[in-house]
């Protein structure tokens, strides 16, 4: 439990508010933060918020979920291409699996991802949903 708490805590910026990084050398937006620019290979440690707007690049619906996510089935996981460029893997929410389409405009929301049992912490993080106001 302690290890999970520390790991979840370390990721709070990216999980709660989709905080990425921007490369000071080539200007590319980076998510998730990795401190090295995937484009130019130079150090990139400047935190930068992302807009949270993007579109569904591709998706798959999960019926047999990994441990901890069983209460939420069926749910759809998508690759979301953000306006700033990075592609994020995330759950979609507030949408029935049959209504998901490639190219669908989506926006980031912060939702419950899972709980660590009845007594453990509740893990929150980004998901994407169809935009309320397009």
């Amino acid at each position: 439990m302690e290890a999970k708490v520390a790991n979840d805590w370390r990721l709070r910026g990216q999980r709660y508010r989709l905080e990425g990084e921007v490369c000071g050398h080539c200007g590319v937006a980076i998510f998730p933060p990795r401190d090295i620019c995937p484009e130019c290979g130079k150090p990139a440690k400047t935190p930068a918020p992302l807009s949270g707007r993007g579109e569904v690049y591709t998706f798959s619906t999960v019926y047999n979920a990994p441990e901890g996510f069983e209460p939420y089935t069926p749910y759809t996981v998508a690759l979301v291409k953000l306006e700033e460029g990075p592609v994020v893997t995330a759950q979609l929410t507030d949408v029935a699996p049959k209504d998901v389409q490639i190219g669908m405009p989506v926006e980031m929301v912060t939702r419950r991802l899972r709980t660590h049992g009845e007594e453990g912490t509740i893990v929150y993080g980004y998901k994407f949903r169809p935009r309320v106001r397009v």
Binding site: T110, R111, L113, Y124
Partner: peptide, 13 residues
Amino acid sequence: AGLDEDTITIAIE
């Protein structure tokens, strides 16, 4: 509220 919503997620939005 949906399965992944609670007072905190409502407050955030």
